[in-house]
């Protein structure tokens, strides 16, 4: 499609403005993490790495990071197993209520976090009698992490069809061998993409976490929220936020690469 010069300039202008609105504030966070002025006046006065060295030694931040990683890994693990199984069940078998089940699996990602949070909080404490702790966060995160794994896997399964597995069985491979040599290799990149997205979702979740985390535990986002308005912690918060920006960009970038290529040219 060809567009006139004026249109092109206008479109690029709009694109630039849109991206600036999203990314300029993030840039400010990155700059402030090395801004020597504790009140973060603008423009930054002097450059310093003091906040970074203080953050590295900050016990609360490190503990929160560790909690976040554990919760994220556990929720991702659960999501990978259950999401894949659900995708197989819904893609490969026809059964009564199949469409409803599909909707029910996807719904949690659309539900407002505050609703999920309150509901799970109630269910854990009053109905099931489970004390809030890391486990309850893991379960809560898994409810929406499953969705991204499920979506990635079912999209891949749709594209593959069942033919490759039939071909494998036809050539003498039993079900286990077929899964090992054909199905799993074809799913690998979809699983990795789904897993990375699931981890990223869990890692920055705050609303549901607030309602399901046990007393005395903090995930990284919650630590940030709690420390944001304490004057002497504020510079460290900027550093943590800067780290989070980088850490969450990488998995999303990788996930996009993985779900984009590999199998796209591969449907033979």
């Amino acid at each position: 499609m060809t567009v006139s010069r004026t249109t092109r300039i206008a479109l690029f202008g709009a694109l630039g403005l849109g991206l600036a609105v999203i990314y300029f504030p993030l840039l400010v966070v990155l700059l402030n993490s090395v801004n020597a002025d504790t009140t973060f006046g603008w423009p930054p006065s002097r450059f310093t790495l003091e906040w970074w060295s203080r953050a590295v030694g900050n016990q609360g931040a490190l503990e929160a990071l560790w909690t976040s990683v554990r919760a994220g890994l556990a929720a991702t693990g659960i999501a990978l197993v259950l999401g894949t199984m659900a995708a197989f069940a819904l893609q490969r078998f026809r059964f009564f209520g199949r469409d409803s089940v599909s909707l029910l699996i996807i719904l949690p990602i659309a539900l407002p976090g505050i609703v999920t949070g309150i509901a799970l909080n109630n269910a854990f404490r009053t109905v099931l009698g489970i004390d809030l702790g890391l486990l309850t966060v893991v379960i809560a995160h898994a409810t929406f992490c499953i969705v991204v794994v499920f979506n990635n896997v079912i999209a891949r399964l749709r594209r593959l069809g069942g033919n490759l597995e039939e071909a494998s069985m036809d050539l003498g491979a039993n079900g286990v061998t077929t899964f090992r040599l054909v199905t799993f290799p074809m799913l690998r990149s979809a699983l990795l993409a789904g897993g990375l997205l699931a981890f990223a979702l869990s890692f920055d979740e705050i609303i549901v976490t607030t309602f399901t985390l046990g007393a005395g535990l903090e995930t990284l986002p919650i630590w940030i929220l709690n420390n944001l308005f304490r004057p002497n912690q504020a510079p460290i918060v900027n550093v943590v936020a800067a780290v989070l920006i980088v850490v969450s960009t990488v998995p999303v970038y990788l996930a996009q690469r993985l779900s984009g290529d590999t199998a796209s040219g591969g449907r033979i």
Binding site: N163, L164, E166, A167, S168, M169, D170, L171, G172, A173, N174, V182, M186, A263, G265, G266, R267, I268
Partner: peptide
Amino acid sequence: PFQRDVNTVFQDYALFP
């Protein structure tokens, strides 16, 4: 299928990509 001494050539070939 894997217990039968037959092999199939599929309509869409079903080669492992």
